[in-house]
C-alpha cells in the first residue's frame, strides 16, 4: 500500500466568544464594583495590620482551636498582611479577567538564525578580525599571554590561603591526656565510679586546667560518653577490657560517620544510636558498628581512677575522633 500520509488539518483559532461582561452593561458595572470591593477589603487588612502593631501587646497569647496557644500580635499582623496583599492580587486578577480585553492576539515568531547573508557577513567579520590580531602567527604573544593569564588567575586563590590555618595534626588530637580527670557536663564536677549506677549514662569532658577556657572547638572533639553496664556483659579483648573500670566504659561521643553527637542510648539492647543517620553501635563490643553508614566503631577512651577515687583518663585517645579524613591512618 503506497498511500500518502495526510495528517489532520489545523482548523485555526476558534471564534472569539464574548464574555457576559462585554455584552451586558449591568454585569460590567457589577464586575467593576466587585473589583473595587476587593481592593477595599485589602485596605481593611492594612488597617488591621496597623492596629495589631500598635494595640496588641507583644507578649499576649491567645488559645485557638487547631493552632493552640498563639502570640496574638504575630497572628493578627500576619492575618492583616495576608488580607492586605491577597485582596490586591484577587482584585487585579478579577479586573484583568472580567474587564480587560480578552481577545487572543497572534504574534509571529522569527527564526533565531539570522538571514544567510548576515550570517556569512558576521562569520567573515569574526574571521578577519580574529586573524587581524595575528594570534595564530605570533606564537610568542599567544604563549606569553596564556602564561600571564593563567598566573594572574592564581592570585585570588593565593589570597584565600589565610582563610584558615593548616590542619597539621590537630584533627588527630584532643584535650585528653594521661591522668586528666573526667568532669560532668553540665556541672564540671569530677566523678567517682560510685556516682554511676549500672545502666546509667553520663556525658563528660576533660577537667580544665586553671586559666583554661572551654570552647566549642574543644567540646567538638573532647565530648565523651560514660556508660556503666555489668562487667560480665563486656565482650572485649583483654587490652580493651583493661581500658574500662568496674563496668564503666568511655567512648567518644562524636560520630565516626559525620560528627553528630551520638546521644541516644538504649538501655535494654545496650546500643548507642546516632540520630543523624542512625548508625548503631554496640556498647559491650567496644562500640562495634551494628547498622547504618558509619564505618568505624566509636573510639574508646581508656579510663581508670586516681588515688582519690575519681575517674581519670589512662592515656589520650589512641586514634582520631570524629569523622574520617584523608590523612587518617587507621
Amino acid at each position: 500500500m503506497s498511500k500518502q500520509i495526510e495528517p489532520f488539518s489545523d482548523p485555526g483559532l476558534p471564534e472569539h466568544i464574548h464574555r457576559k461582561t462585554d455584552t451586558d452593561p449591568f454585569l460590567e458595572k457589577k464586575a467593576e464594583r466587585q473589583v473595587a470591593i476587593l481592593f477595599l477589603i485589602s485596605a481593611v487588612g492594612t488597617v488591621l495590620f496597623i492596629a495589631a502593631y500598635i494595640a496588641i501587646p507583644s507578649d499576649q497569647f491567645i488559645f485557638l482551636p487547631a493552632l493552640g496557644s498563639t502570640n496574638a500580635q504575630q497572628l493578627f499582623l500576619g492575618l492583616g498582611l495576608t488580607i492586605a496583599t491577597l485582596f490586591i492580587g484577587l482584585g487585579a486578577v478579577h479586573w484583568a479577567k472580567a474587564l480587560m480585553p480578552d481577545t487572543e492576539v497572534i504574534a509571529e515568531r522569527h527564526e533565531f538564525r539570522s538571514e544567510e547573508i548576515d550570517r556569512k557577513d558576521f562569520i567573515d567579520t569574526v574571521k578577519t578580525q580574529a586573524s587581524a590580531s595575528g594570534l595564530g602567527r605570533r606564537s610568542a604573544i599567544k604563549k606569553s599571554l596564556g602564561l600571564s593569564l593563567g598566573l594572574v588567575s592564581l592570585s585570588p586563590l593565593l589570597l584565600l590561603r589565610d582563610l584558615g590555618p593548616l590542619p597539621k595534626k590537630s584533627l588527630e588530637q584532643t584535650s585528653w591526656k594521661t591522668g586528666t580527670r573526667l568532669v560532668t557536663d553540665p556541672g564540671n564536677q569530677p566523678i567517682k565510679a560510685s556516682d554511676l549506677e549500672v545502666g546509667a549514662v553520663a556525658q563528660v569532658l576533660p577537667e580544665l586546667q586553671p586559666e583554661e577556657e572551654r570552647t566549642l572547638n574543644n567540646i567538638a572533639k573532647d565530648a565523651v560518653l560514660l556508660i556503666r553496664i555489668r562487667p560480665e556483659e563486656f565482650q572485649l579483648s583483654p587490652e580493651r577490657l583493661s581500658w574500662t573500670h568496674e563496668g564503666i566504659i568511655a567512648f567518644s561521643k562524636i560520630c565516626t560517620h559525620m560528627g553528630c553527637a551520638v546521644a541516644l542510648y538504649e538501655q535494654q539492647t545496650k546500643h548507642l544510636l546516632c540520630p543523624c543517620h542512625q548508625s548503631t553501635f554496640d556498647v559491650p563490643r567496644a562500640a562495634k558498628v551494628l547498622f547504618g553508614p558509619a564505618a568505624r566503631p566509636l573510639p574508646q577512651l581508656a579510663i581508670t581512677v586516681d588515688s582519690e577515687g575519681y575517674l581519670i583518663a589512662q592515656k589520650p585517645f589512641t586514634e582520631a575522633v570524629g569523622p574520617s579524613f584523608w590523612e587518617r591512618s587507621s
Partner: peptide
C-alpha cells in the same frame, strides 16, 4: 511560527502583578 495569547499591557501587567500579591498573601 506564532505565539497566541494576551498582550503584556494591560492584561499581563494586571494578572502577573496581581499574582505577585496573591503569592505574598498566601
Amino acid at each position: 511560527k506564532n505565539v497566541v495569547g494576551y498582550p503584556l499591557m494591560p492584561v499581563y501587567m494586571a494578572k502577573a502583578g496581581g499574582f505577585f500579591f496573591i503569592v505574598f498573601g498566601v
